[in-house]
């Protein structure tokens, strides 16, 4: 009987998965070929014909490698990206915006910042809500915790912290131009 493990291992060489995942895929596909071979033998095929039948299960090994890779990693990446970046980021943005709206309605009067030109104030005027600013580190920490818990890299954790800052910073930057 052909060594299916060796065949699959050589054909799927370069399958970019974690070593134990790659070993599992190789073992599983080899077991399938093994059973296909035995099934063909039971049906009365000669050893060579049975082996040929097994080999015809895969016409393009490179394509199979690519499709296994995609199936086992791409959706993982997408799911991880959602869990590690998008979900914490959007949650921090939503919370910070929601809290800002609440503070605007129920909170203390904001601190007004304006540019001076001689004796008169010139628009735009920045309205700073101190309680809201104080809450941002907490919201950022929550985003960081969620991203970190989902296994996010340092970059993903940092990005989910600063994500709500970016639209606000852009707004102020445009305002002061």
């Amino acid at each position: 009987m052909p060594d299916w493990q060796a065949l699959v291992r050589s054909q799927l060489d370069g399958l970019a998965l974690k070593p134990h995942e790659r070993a599992e895929v190789i073992e599983e596909l080899a077991a399938h070929l093994d059973e296909t071979f035995e099934g063909a033998r039971r049906q009365g095929f000669a050893e060579q014909d049975a082996a040929q039948r097994c080999l015809s299960e895969v016409k393009d090994w490179r394509d199979l490698r690519r499709r296994i890779q995609t199936a086992r990693t791409m959706e993982n990446i997408m799911t991880n990206r959602v869990k590690q970046f998008w979900l914490p980021s959007l949650l921090t943005l939503l919370l910070s915006m929601g809290l800002l709206a609440l503070i605007q309605i129920f909170g203390p009067n904001p601190w007004m910042v304006a540019r001076h030109s001689g004796w008169s104030l010139v628009a735009p005027v920045a309205v700073v809500y101190i309680p809201w600013l104080l809450s941002l580190p907490l919201i950022g920490a929550m985003g960081a915790y969620l991203s970190n818990r989902a296994g996010g890299s340092q970059r993903a954790v940092f990005s989910s912290i600063v994500f709500p800052v970016l639209p606000i910073w852009s707004f102020f930057w445009l305002g002061f131009l």
Partner: peptide, 23 residues
């Protein structure tokens, strides 16, 4: 289903958590 058709689909369905594989 050939091997080439079956396993990428099984892995995809497993990623979507429609099925679960165990040794």
């Amino acid at each position: 289903f050939t091997l080439a058709a079956l396993y990428p689909m099984l892995y995809r369905m497993e990623q979507r958590r429609w099925i679960r594989g165990s040794w």
